[in-house]
Design a binder for these strands. Structure first.
Ligand SMILES: [Mn+2]
Ligand SMILES: [Mn+2]
Ligand SMILES: [Mn+2]
Ligand SMILES: [Mn+2]
Lengths: 219, 219
DNA sequence: AAAAATATTTAGATTAGTCTAAAAATAAGT
DNA sequence: ACTTATTTTTAGACTAATCTAAATATTTTT
């Protein structure tokens, strides 16, 4: 029905809309994310628009149509279910899974993904803390606070990570920070916005703002 | 490194070489298997030849080179491991898995396939009884007899099926014939080569030559 | 051994996806 | 408001994979 390339573009547009609160997604943002030229993006936007998957206004940007959103959610669902499988069943590290899931998400079989979902126990969140859309495209939402915004004495558990680059994830691993790890803010420095935190009740470390702002905390 | 299309052609050539005892594989056989035109096959043979994956003699046919064989074996390994996964873990029926594995086999990650192999317990045969090449491309070979060649009184267990069309597999399922099912030949009719067999010690049925010749029996 | 039938290759077109370079539109700076 | 800078689109070209139709090679039949 759709090519892998079309699926990747749709997913990219969906993820950008999620991140930037529904404002139009621009050609340049897509070309940066997809690592292609703006010209290629324009070509693809015309194609997706022709298939009624996006609303495209020249020079302005794009939004997903109803059917575009449904398709995008199904790809995100596959991606995150496979990531869960890779970590929980095959014992991958959370920094190794993205590239593999990037391919697995394109395997087209409703039966496969339904059976995989059952096999995994219908998980609600992937290894990065991102919600896994259910069969109907519904997402479990939990409101999370950005670690960088917590005040001294406040605490919670790591629920998700914003940045998912392997290097960042490996860095968190070295700090012994994973999903579900309890964190407590001990102190904040105003000038560089760095903070001292206690990890898992024991390890006390100072982390930069660049680290803190990419960690999301839940109750 | 290689496109999905190139991988499919390589696998096709490998399977034909296995089946027809190393004689040259012709353009027409490939075009029939791949459901494309002979012209498309010729184009692809030139491409694969250029990449030193096949030995191609115009108008004669092709053989795999060393590196072509290695690549083909790795695709076959992935295909059969995924089939095993689908049946053993996700509870697919053996007639539902081929099309899905046809896509999964193209996911390129050595780490993935090694971890999957370990997760599955390094299986030696896929759900159709075909051998799964190991990490080095080694195949477990068992010599099997074609059921149609067995004489009355001879018996054994179903070890593999030659034909793997879903309709044929569903038919065997209805007869309660699966891999490992004990079979004993009771009688053979000369004129149509049909045979009466006992399935699993109980059910006695008459099967046509077309059925029998597609079932392989092991000790 | 020539004719007929079959198999294979070549020639030329088509589509998806990509790129570079140039043109056009929009946004920013003074 | 006008100039400059940035973003986006268009134009034209390229590769992979496919097809149809025509040409050529091989095999089979007589
Ligand atoms: Mn992808
Ligand atoms: Mn994820
Ligand atoms: Mn395939
Ligand atoms: Mn199989």
């Amino acid at each position: 029905m759709f090519s892998q390339t079309e699926e990747n573009y749709l997913k990219c547009i969906y993820l950008q809309l999620e991140k930037n609160a529904q404002s139009l997604v621009t050609t340049s943002v897509i070309s940066e994310q997809m690592k292609t030229t703006a010209a290629s993006v324009t070509d693809m936007l015309k194609r997706l628009s022709g298939k009624k998957l996006i609303h495209y206004k020249k020079y302005q940007g794009v939004l997903l149509t109803k059917s575009g959103r449904i398709k995008a959610l199904s790809i995100v669902r596959k991606h995150r279910l496979w990531e869960y499988f890779l970590v929980e069943k095959l014992k991958f590290q959370w920094d190794e899974i993205h590239a593999v899931a990037e391919q697995l998400e394109h395997v087209a079989s409703e039966l496969l993904i339904d059976k995989l979902d059952v096999f995994l126990g219908r998980p609600k969140f992937d290894p990065h803390g991102d919600p896994i859309p259910d069969h109907h495209g519904k997402l479990s939402l939990h409101r999370l606070k950005n670690l960088s915004l917590l005040k001294p004495r406040e605490k919670g558990k790591v629920a998700a990570v914003v940045e998912q680059d392997p290097d960042f994830l490996k860095h968190l691993e070295r700090l012994q920070i994973q999903i579900e790890t309890p964190i407590k803010v001990l102190d904040k420095a105003e000038f560089d916005r760095s903070m001292t935190i206690s990890i898992n009740g024991s390890g006390t470390v100072n982390i930069s703002y660049d680290i803190a702002k990419n960690i999301l905390i839940g109750k």
